[in-house]
Design a protein around this nucleic acid. Sequence first.
DNA 1: TAGTGGTCTAGACCACTCA
DNA 2: GAGTGGTCTAGACCACTAT
Lengths: 230, 230
Amino acid sequence: MNAISHKIIRETLLERIQSGEWELGELIPNEEELAEEFGCARTTVNRALRALAEEGIVIRKRKGGTRVCELPKREAKFEIPIVRQQVEATGAVYRHKIVCRESKKPPISVSTRLHLGADEKALYLEALHLADERPFAFEMRWVNPAAVPHIEEEKFDTISVNEWLIKSVPFSSGDVSFSAVNADCDIADALDVTEGSALFLVDRTTWYDQSFITTLKLYYNQGFKFYSKL
Amino acid sequence: MNAISHKIIRETLLERIQSGEWELGELIPNEEELAEEFGCARTTVNRALRALAEEGIVIRKRKGGTRVCELPKREAKFEIPIVRQQVEATGAVYRHKIVCRESKKPPISVSTRLHLGADEKALYLEALHLADERPFAFEMRWVNPAAVPHIEEEKFDTISVNEWLIKSVPFSSGDVSFSAVNADCDIADALDVTEGSALFLVDRTTWYDQSFITTLKLYYNQGFKFYSKL
DNA sequence: TAGTGGTCTAGACCACTCA
DNA sequence: GAGTGGTCTAGACCACTAT
């Protein structure tokens, strides 16, 4: 292909920015000028600049032109993986065990999150994720039974709750928080660590449309880390 | 505008996928067919589908066509913010204090990370980040002085080390890990918490081109959380 | 080999926003 | 008001890959 690709343009511009050829906050040439320089259509330059804008490298404004970002933001993307995949990625054999399963009235903090009435019951599950039969993570989860009625029929002996939910309600939204907590007595017991150990906690709530599906706390065993590139 | 926008197409297709009109893994119509259905150019459909592919909703293959993703991945994007911004976002007043600053031989774990010779010195800094004069986070950092020579002249009385580095080396790459640790004696002391408290640790290393810039451990005080949308 | 997505072009009009 | 990016079109050729 003779034509100049948007990838090459993006890379070239990125190098100029990184090398300091353009200062932070400085206006860079407009699309038409760059198109002329690269000898390509404006559309192609547009695509390259749009990519840089999505990455937070430049800021674009109509009439205002395109500027190098003043305070480049650093973003880390974490995939929220299925625990099974995390375990298998380490080369270990994955297994999970439902420790507790009952239908009961959730505490207020949960019933508000799941948008349940004060007297409505929800499904409560505790599960232990094992890597080579050693505790890897402990999960405490509430499910809104109205959102996924068929869950009553599922045993979860071959598939984890999370994987089942992903398949049943594949494109839900949600929010998530990461934090550090000291293991209380129960969790220390489940994960076979001493009480007070620092554990990595992922707290996640998901919903689809207006209907809340599940909220869970996932306690990873000691030493667990989330990695990412910047 | 009469023309159908790529955003509307993206939304429409997303609704069909979410509603289950197309199964997981199912082949969806090709670009030309969709263009005809929406009465627009193929380019426009292409842009909508490309967006869905970037979001991990569909998978596209030449000749293979476009399919709904089998196992939709969940991604969480975290901005790695400047601590000052984190503090100010809570409404508190930010201040930081350099607790320690010296040039010395780093431990091997650091000198390998920074690609330093065994006998080379590096700049070591400890800093405390305060929110309304209460400890918010404690930072232990090594800087490769060869990568940023002017750092010797900087006092860091008005600007934090991180902000200074971002301005000096704006578009560096890096990696980062999140984990949970029990506070050791020194850190507990610095953050004014009891020893053994669970702390959220961000461990980050950045470089530019081939040259390593800095590696740091940032211990957030108890109760700190990272939030994100899924 | 044939079918699909990937990309580029040249031109057009629009929408926003700065001065 | 004028300059910039935002987007759409219609057409073309290419690159990959499933069959």
